[in-house]
Nucleic acid binder design. Structure first.
Lengths: 336, 336
DNA sequence: TAATTTTGTACAAACGTTTGTGCAAAATTT
DNA sequence: AAATTTTGCACAAACGTTTGTACAAAATTA
């Protein structure tokens, strides 16, 4: 069947498209449309299976009721969880959220941003996937409110909500040191990402503060493969670390696969702590200790920031780091 | 800065909006726009930071280049993985995909569908979250191509791609029986979902075929909590099963938490197999055997079905069940 | 030189809503 | 009875693109 428009309904009811539009967009009372006319319109709309054309309405009003959320990977439970919460929260405010997966690829991120702005989005929440920021800055320059999550750019005046990665990593490292570990290897992710850089700095500072001169940082990617390969390399060395600190769960999983293949047990042979929590960590062969990020808080605050910017056009730039928490399970052995 | 339109560029370049539109939408050669004019237009567009208005274009052309994907939960790695693959695949065909999370709530699903159709989507891939289908059928009646994934409606002529849930569950149960188990409990998910119903039937048939009269099926939800509570109840009974078959990973996780709390070891005290794979399953305290669904194939075929329907308006209804595979890890003990 | 073709570009309608403005009839007030 | 107000509705412009159609100048052909 052919698509029904307001014009069709006007013809059937003998009313004008103005009257029909006002009834269907909930403004009947405001414009004193008679009860009988309202009923005729509603009946006709139902009978003809009328579906409003959001594009036409948006063209005229300039309001899309659409927001965009760009995350680097739907396959990462951390980001999937954030996406789920943000989507649910924004729905409460009658926004539709276009969720986009940039696949950890800045060129895709740029393309997606173009697609989003062409659709007249009224706001953007983004987990940037690289260190390029100009294309994100340009969105803000177009007077589209932007909020960064997790990864952000310190020197830009774009609001962001993240975890205090430095503090989380610092505490994780301190804990290892307090348990007698001095030979600790950190397996990092993407070096240019701000969370990674701060986690590395947290690790490094904790080591230095404890007087440990030998600081070992390896890896360059938040992937399973990176965790796997770097752990394999570590285990080939004469002098192995007594503890490993992985900067993401995907790295931790790769690390654990390599350890298992080499018949090295956590925590008896080596201790392991990771960044980020997940329910699975409880049921691993060795339940993993970790630094947990407050995912729910991050999501809700990001939404709050964005809506505040949209509604009040407030120019204040909120840049907040939330406190992570350390979750001790069974993967750290005391050796002093 | 104010939004730039084609009209602004026309004014700056002294050309008509027709010329400008044709240059910017890649039709300059086709309409013999001179080189100098093209250059003037492109320069002005860049200088004024022109962003096309997709809504206006769509209003005129009737083409949105937009597809919709509705999944019941972004927090479920199975669906998040599917969403990721489908999104990546459709991007290759220059579609933007609106990903929507219905939160296992059919009313939200209906609302989301309304929002999608109002945005002139050209196709829909959906994992239905309940047993109501009329609102999905209506989408197809509006001549919007629809493909169901994972959960579907057998009696409808809507294309779907899923796993042969019956066969997967049947084989899992047979394997348990071959390993000497006869007291097997199945912890199921949402009873009205087609995959669940078929998995239960596969389990039941395998049990009956082996001459086992006592068939125990519990639960009613694909959640951690359901798995946890039902396992707790099981462990209170005098006669416990020797094996548990959970119909999803989230149920399996809840089950494992309960077992751990009761100090019951897998597979020494009880065997466990689940439906669905995940990389984590390898590193659990007991690596879990499972029936793995071909997620990548499901995603790619769903995309293929949808694009085929969009492009060729082909009325054939493809309804395909893919073969699952059994992945044996360490969670099943042979007891005969 | 005139007729025809090619080139480069423009006009204006269309898409489907929304909304500022306004009209005519009915009701009320003076 | 006339003036004013209220009620119920309609006209037409607007949003920003796309595109069918067409025009005028330049180039080519006969």
């Amino acid at each position: 069947m052919q698509k029904t428009s307001i014009t069709d309904i006007a013809e059937i009811t003998g009313l004008s498209i103005t009257t029909v539009s006002r009834v269907l967009s909930g403004k009947a009372e405001q414009y004193r449309i008679g009860k009988k006319s309202q009923e005729k319109v509603r009946e006709a709309a139902q009978k003809l299976h009328y579906v409003p054309n959001h594009f036409a309405a948006n063209l005229r009003t300039g309001k899309s009721n659409t927001l965009a959320l760009i995350i680097p990977s739907l396959n990462n439970p951390f980001f999937a969880g954030i996406a789920s919460e943000i989507n649910t929260e924004l729905r409460k405010f009658n926004y539709i959220t276009i969720i986009s997966d940039s696949d950890e690829n800045v060129e895709i991120e740029k393309m997606e941003l173009l697609q989003m702005t062409a659709r007249n989005i009224e706001g953007l929440i983004i987990v940037p996937c690289g260190d390029q920021w100009q294309h994100i800055k340009e969105i803000q320059d177009q007077r589209i409110p932007v909020v960064c999550i997790d990864r952000y750019f310190e020197h830009l005046d774009i609001p962001y909500i993240s975890t205090d990665n430095y503090e989380g990593a610092n505490k994780a490292t301190q804990y290892l040191i307090e348990n007698g570990h001095s030979k600790i290897t950190c397996i990092q992710g993407v070096q240019t990402s701000t969370p990674n850089r701060l986690r590395v700095k947290g690790f490094t500072d904790a080591m230095r503060e404890a007087g440990h001169k030998e600081i070992n940082i390896v890896g360059d990617d938040f992937t399973f493969q990176n965790g796997y390969l770097e752990t394999k390399l570590l285990l080939q060395q004469k002098q192995r670390p007594t503890a490993i600190f992985t900067l993401s769960n995907t790295i931790a999983m790769g690390c654990m696969k390599a350890l298992k293949e080499e018949n090295i047990h956590v925590p008896n042979d080596i201790s392991l702590i990771t960044f980020d929590d997940h329910p699975y960590l409880d049921y691993l062969s060795t339940p993993l200790s970790c630094i947990a990020q407050p995912v729910s808080d991050i999501s809700k605050i990001a939404v709050k920031f964005l809506l505040s910017k949209i509604q009040n056009k407030d120019i204040n730039t909120s840049q907040v780091l939330l406190k992570p928490s350390m979750k001790l399970r069974d993967s750290i052995r005391k050796i002093n």
